[in-house]
Design a protein around this nucleic acid. Structure first.
Length: 174
DNA sequence: TATTTGATTCTT
DNA sequence: AGAATCAAATAT
């Protein structure tokens, strides 16, 4: 079952743990790659100093202000694409960074590595998370017990002051 | 117009 | 500990 766009128009911290165990499907031409989400981080609102939208709307983060269900893709450190799914309603800037994916062959840990293997780039920025765009989420009935879901501090945002300590990174244990 | 800086990862 | 490498944000 393909996740509807409405799935993402809800509180980000509610969606983030639910995304674990959901499948990410990437279609490239005739090929299809899929794997389930093992790790994700929430970036919520203008008050969150770690969130790109914290300093107002800019060219880069404009899609975060759009309604939930679209991709926010951008280049970091000049070499790695970050894949985020925008959440919540229009004019509320929030998104979830996908940090880890487990496919049948391989476990990609690290946002840069998974975007490289899924061939994700700027072309998807602002596109909806539907099969038409070639990248979307599916619920394939994998249910995780709450003991498998762990929380921790977000990574790589030491500039964000006290916000770096928020336990908004969700991941699957083992 | 110039400089700084990352939601990273791999090499030394 | 440092490099790779660049667009956008910030400083000048």
């Amino acid at each position: 079952m393909i996740l509807s766009l409405d799935f993402f128009k809800r509180p980000t911290l509610e969606i983030c743990p639910e995304l674990l165990g959901k499948f990410l499907i990437r279609k490239i031409g005739k090929k299809e790659i899929s794997g389930f989400v093992t790790e994700a981080e929430a970036y919520v609102g203008m008050d969150d100093k770690a969130c790109h939208a914290a300093r107002g709307k800019t060219k880069r983060n404009a899609v975060m202000f759009e309604p939930g269900g679209i991709w926010y893709v951008y280049l970091c450190y000049g070499m790695y694409w970050m894949l985020n799914i925008v959440t919540e309603e229009k004019d509320f800037p929030a998104a979830i960074l996908i940090r880890g994916i487990k496919t049948v062959e391989k476990h990609f840990n690290g946002p840069g590595k998974l975007t490289t293997s899924f061939q994700i780039n700027k072309g998807l920025n602002g596109k909806s998370a539907t099969p038409q765009s070639g990248l979307w989420f599916e619920d394939r009935g994998v249910s995780l017990s709450s003991k498998d879901i762990k929380q921790g501090k977000r990574i790589g945002i030491n500039y964000a002051g006290s916000w770096q300590h928020k336990p908004w990174r969700f991941f699957i244990s083992n």
